[in-house]
Computed example of a mutant assay.
Amino acid sequence: MSEFTVTGQWNARDGWQSFEKDIEAVNENVAREHVLAEFGSKHGLKRTQVEIEGVDA
């Protein structure tokens, strides 16, 4: 598995907040899914409330 850095923004109460997460995953698509699932479970956000700007290996 490789380590990916996922960057983007999520819709908080005060407006859009930037984030940067390091995720171990098989490929970029799996890394995106892990980030979206994490924001959904921890913050109760829907996928439309998270914008992923980039995934770097």
Score class of each variant (00 low, 15 high):
Val26Cys: 08
Trp10Pro: 01
Glu3Ile: 09
Gly44Glu: 03
Arg32Gly: 04
Ala12Lys: 09
Leu45Met: 11
Phe19Lys: 04
Asn29Cys: 08
Gly40Trp: 06
Gln9Asp: 05
Glu53Leu: 15
Glu20Cys: 07
Glu20Ile: 08
Arg32Met: 09
Asn29Tyr: 15
Phe4Gly: 00
Asp56Ala: 15
Gln9Val: 09
Glu24His: 10
Trp10Gly: 01
Leu36Cys: 01
Ala37Val: 07
Glu33Asp: 13
Leu36Phe: 02
Ile23Asp: 04
Ser41Leu: 12
Glu28Cys: 02
Arg32His: 05
Lys42Tyr: 05
Leu45Arg: 09
Trp16Met: 08
Asp22Val: 12
Glu51Val: 06
Gln49Arg: 14
Asn11Met: 13
His34Ser: 04
Ala37Glu: 13
Lys42Ala: 10
Asp14Leu: 13
Asn11Thr: 04
Glu51Tyr: 03
Val55Met: 12
Gly44Tyr: 06
Gln17Asp: 06
His43Lys: 14
Phe39Gln: 00
His43Pro: 01
Gln17His: 05
Glu28His: 08
Gly15Gln: 11
Gly40Ser: 09
Thr48Met: 02
Ser41Lys: 12
Ser18Tyr: 07
Asp14Phe: 08
Arg47Tyr: 12
Ala37Phe: 10
Ala57Thr: 04
Glu3Gly: 02
Val30Asn: 08
Arg32Asp: 04
Asp14Pro: 01
Val55Leu: 09
Gln49Trp: 10
Asp14Asn: 14
Phe19Trp: 05
Gly40Thr: 05
His43Ser: 11
Glu38Leu: 13
Arg47Gly: 04
Lys21Arg: 14
Ser2Gln: 10
His43Val: 06
His34Pro: 00
Val30Cys: 01
Glu51His: 08
Glu20Val: 10
Asp22Ile: 10
Lys21Gln: 14
Val35Phe: 06
Val26Trp: 06
Glu53Lys: 15
Ala25Leu: 04
Arg32Ser: 02
Gln9Ser: 06
Glu28Val: 03
Ala57Phe: 04
Ala57Ile: 02
